[in-house]
């Protein structure tokens, strides 16, 4: 079985800016994959290269085994891309846009599937509305629908929830999760790290055109982030504890690896004569991982 996406040694420069610098990446079929990185890291360039919108200077990209240049017809048939920019064709209605998009992929009678997509994205009542009349959130839904008309096995969503309300986010993720469960490979870029943490089983991080982390979400959380005991106390904290912790606005944050360490920590605080006013447990989160990876050295070894 070929990989859903296979990217080998891909580089691309725009003038003197190196947007992609020797990217190697493989996404397996059925994965829910996250592509993260700050603005300008190269995420959109990489997606554009995959979609044939950008031609790389070096390297090769394949979707479901089809080279995106040499075998572009087959590669584009198996790929659905939701672009980041909120673009639409003001001349047409929602249904016309979807029928035209189906036709581009050689699909004539697509009404049943179009109805299903509209239903799942909460667009049914807007099917005959002109694109100009839709709100930003509705236009975003149509962009997702347009990427799905040809039932692509690989779906790439480039920041689909940027500036989108809670309801649409939930509708969208519910639908995308179902598609993933039905076997579609999903690649997602987002700045909402909580979203990526909840949805993606594996994550790649890009920084200045280079891959700086690539691992399962669980492994990344383990490697770069820990639990912490966050508390506010009356009385001086024992020095042996504060050495490894950090203080912020009266709150102490004490890292720990396993929950069996919590009881001894509390005992030490009690023994020092401190009383605890407030307490919470901080879980490892992707945001912390992201910050650490991005602050780390450029050439951190990749798994």
């Amino acid at each position: 079985m070929s990989a859903a996406i296979c990217i080998q040694q891909v580089s691309k420069s725009f003038g003197s800016t190196r947007a992609l610098d020797g990217i190697d990446l493989e996404v397996q079929q059925g994965e829910f994959f996250g592509l993260l990185g700050p603005n300008g890291a190269g995420k959109t360039t990489l997606i554009s290269a995959l979609a044939g919108l950008v031609r790389p200077d070096a390297g090769s990209l394949r979707v479901m085994g089809h080279d995106v240049q040499a075998d572009y017809r087959a590669a584009r048939r198996v790929l659905g891309v939701v672009p980041q920019e909120l673009v639409f064709d003001p001349f047409f209605t929602v249904r016309e846009s979807l029928k035209i998009q189906s036709g581009y992929f050689g699909i004539g009678d697509n009404d049943k599937w179009i109805d299903e997509i509209l239903e799942n994205l909460g667009l049914t009542s807007k099917a005959n509305a002109n694109m100009r009349m839709l709100s930003g959130g509705m236009k975003r839904r149509v962009l997702v629908a347009q990427a799905l008309v040809h039932r692509p096995p690989v779906i790439v969503l480039d920041e689909p929830t940027a500036g989108v309300d809670v309801e649409l986010r939930q509708t969208l993720w519910h639908f995308i999760r179902r598609l993933n469960e039905a076997g579609h490979t999903i690649v997602l870029t987002t700045h909402y790290l909580e979203e990526a943490e909840n949805l993606c089983t594996r994550i790649a991080m890009l920084k200045a055109g280079r891959l700086v982390a690539l691992d399962t979400t669980a492994n990344l959380l383990r490697r770069f982030s820990v639990h912490s005991l966050r508390l506010r106390t009356r009385g001086a904290m024992p020095a042996e504890l504060t050495r490894g912790g950090a203080e912020n606005g009266g709150w102490w944050s004490l890292p720990f690896d396993g929950f069996d360490e919590v009881e001894p920590l509390l005992a030490k605080i009690r023994a020092a004569g401190c009383s605890i006013d407030d307490l919470e447990i901080g879980k490892p989160d992707l945001e912390e991982v992201f910050v650490r990876v991005m602050q780390g050295p450029q050439a951190e070894p990749v798994n």
Binding site: A51, G52, L79, D89, I100, Q101, Y104, F105, Q146, H150
Partner: peptide, 17 residues
């Protein structure tokens, strides 16, 4: 118009030679 508004991608993404 398609270039300025960006909807040219709808024609560039499908398998059209």
């Amino acid at each position: 118009q398609s270039k300025v508004t960006g909807n040219i991608v709808f024609v560039l993404l499908p398998p059209i030679s």
